[in-house]
């Protein structure tokens, strides 16, 4: 009887484990099936590198270069803001701050991660967007730079917590050794700790950016959603994610437009997958 119970429990656990893989494969196959159907109508080169996204004109023009550039621009902007601040914050938490402040900061970072993105988007819309509009004297504050700033907030928790872990796991003896040679605190951080933790920090940055690329709600609310090739960060842009979210409801099932949105999904999937794999490689790479 005992044995039978063991058997059942074991199998149940096995099934739960397999279920997640099973669903991932199903989702992936469905995405491929629906997305690749597009290429019966549009050739892949034109889809990726054409400049016109007019899904409801007649005939529909389904070319996503503006969307790719929009996503890239917003992500790069977010990277420029979140990497220095995030890594700096991680260094502060791991190496500089007194324990009491450290706890407060870590709790704060976790809180930041817990804010739903729609709330961040909403706050950005009513505070950041008018501010950007006034500062840069723009006709509208719904721009790539507003999106970048908001997304930087979303990347920050990931970057800070993983980079902090990486720094924390550097053996204390390195720091002691450097200090015993008469280095200042900053020299020890800059010359020994950062190189020692570099692969973990790189992985932190990649995972943070992975989150940014996949983010939808906030960018849809504050980047302006204009599917044109961006010439500056002070222009409205439209990202890949926002396009899917905004248009899926109105696309006729089985139309070219509908397939195109799934094809965008594949592009996003591939990009996120590559980012995660790169991060993983660095996270598990043997230290030199």
């Amino acid at each position: 009887m005992q044995k039978f119970k063991e058997f059942i429990i074991e199998k149940l656990i096995l099934i739960s484990g397999l279920a997640s893989i099973f669903f991932v494969i199903l989702i992936f196959l469905f995405l491929l099936k629906e997305g690749l159907a597009l290429f019966k109508f549009v050739n892949p080169g034109q889809f990726l590198f054409g400049k016109n996204w007019y899904p409801i004109s007649e005939p529909a023009q389904l070319e996503i270069l503006p969307l790719i550039l929009g996503s890239l621009l917003v992500t790069l902007g977010a990277a420029v803001i979140s990497i220095p601040i995030g890594v700096g914050c991680a260094i502060f938490i791991a190496e500089v701050s007194p324990p009491s402040i450290k706890e407060i900061l870590k709790a704060g970072i976790e809180l930041l991660a817990a804010i739903p993105s729609v709330v961040l988007g909403f706050i950005g819309m009513v505070t950041l967007v008018p501010w950007v509009k006034n500062i840069f004297q723009l006709p509208t504050g719904l721009t790539a730079v507003s999106g970048s700033i908001m997304l930087a907030f979303m990347a920050m928790p990931t970057i800070v917590s993983i980079a902090e872990d990486a720094l924390y796991s550097v053996p204390k003896s390195y720091k002691e050794g450097a200090l015993a040679l008469g280095s200042t605190k900053w020299q020890a951080i800059y010359r020994v700790l950062l190189p020692a933790a570099s692969s973990g920090i790189f992985a932190a940055v990649m995972l943070g950016l992975g989150r940014v690329i996949g983010e939808t709600m906030a960018v849809m609310m504050i980047t302006g959603n204009a599917a044109v090739i961006p010439k500056s960060i002070l222009q409205p842009v439209r990202t890949l994610t926002a396009t899917i979210a905004a248009e899926m409801g109105e696309a006729v099932v089985g139309s070219e437009h509908y397939f195109a949105l799934f094809a965008i999904g594949i592009v996003l999937f591939v990009v996120s997958f590559m980012i995660n794999v790169t991060a993983d490689l660095f996270l598990h790479r043997k230290k030199i």
Binding site: Y174, G177, S183, T184, A196
Partner: peptide, 18 residues
């Protein structure tokens, strides 16, 4: 900094930098 330049230390576990 000056003190530790003059007074060097070797640790129990060898700790070369990476």
């Amino acid at each position: 900094v000056t003190l530790r330049k003059r007074v060097g230390m070797v640790f129990q576990r060898p700790n070369p930098f990476p």
